[in-house]
Nucleic acid binder design. Structure first.
Lengths: 152, 152
DNA sequence: TATTGTTATACTCTATAACTATA
DNA sequence: TATAGTTATAGAGTATAACAATA
């Protein structure tokens, strides 16, 4: 029954939540980066270049990522009408459905974890976490926005 | 100024903390898994097999991981006196020093984030996070124990 | 026979550099 | 010339299957 510091607790909490999503994604043969791709595309139809910026990856890495996702039928490439050099990437219906399944399973897991807290604890956690995240967003200028896999 | 749910907030918080560690580790040319290896070895001298269990990886994956860490002088292999099939893995002094530097930088980052909260908020966060993590440990039987990179 | 660790092989993920096609 | 995307190549990380040495 060791006393844990706030920092250790936050680190453990992060690994716990991150690992939960990773496990649920793996159940559907999705890596974390493929899961992020689906998350980014949920409400966007970016070019390959823009997608690389969202993911913080080199464009050559994204070529392979989208190759594999397209081979599985999760995303589609289309030529951009505006610029014949560009390629637009979007989610297919199976891709959208898969993303929804993973997100639902993940949310169920976290809901179950939250159920172990008392209602006042849940309220306190919600308030502090919200402030923590928004304060960080303001301080750094990076808004994580809403959704499973936020992006700048 | 969208309202975020507790689940979204927790997910964002987790990505934020996880990404912070990942960035600090990368500054020292450490991947997350190599960082976990150093963390596990901080207070253990396991066999390859035991290390694989701590990391949740196949033993063949750990062979390559330790090959690369050993090549960098961060860890050392020794024959086990107890069983001539076994190999004991331990941190070298440079490995220990590197792990300490990464941990210190990470803790400084999180401390800075926590400084954006009020003292009562910090106290509330600490209490709830501790309960969250310990409640999960009790419910699942997995004790994350102390330290930067907890293991079963 | 069973276990420990390594090797062989295959695939994902990542980056750098060079290339093609457009702008 | 500059930009968008792909290809070539190299290396880390992962797993499965086969193997050698030891128990």
């Amino acid at each position: 029954m060791a006393t844990i510091t706030t920092i250790d607790g936050l680190a453990q909490l992060s690994f716990l939540i991150y690992g939960t999503l990773e496990r649920r994604a793996a159940e559907h043969d999705l890596s974390m980066v493929q899961t992020r791709v689906l998350g980014v595309l949920r409400d966007r139809r970016p070019t390959m270049n823009q997608l690389a910026a969202y993911l913080g990856l080199d464009k050559s890495s994204v070529t392979g990522l989208i190759d594999r996702a397209e081979r599985r039928g999760l995303v589609a490439r289309e030529p951009s009408p505006a610029d014949r050099r560009s390629v637009l990437v979007s989610l297919t219906e199976p891709g959208r459905a898969l993303a929804a399944r993973v997100q639902a399973a993940f949310e169920a897991d976290v809901t179950e974890m939250l159920a172990r807290l008392t209602p006042p604890e849940r309220a306190a956690l919600s308030a502090v976490v919200t402030h923590f995240v928004t304060a960080h967003a303001e301080a750094t200028g990076v808004d994580l926005a809403a959704g499973l896999l936020p992006s700048p």
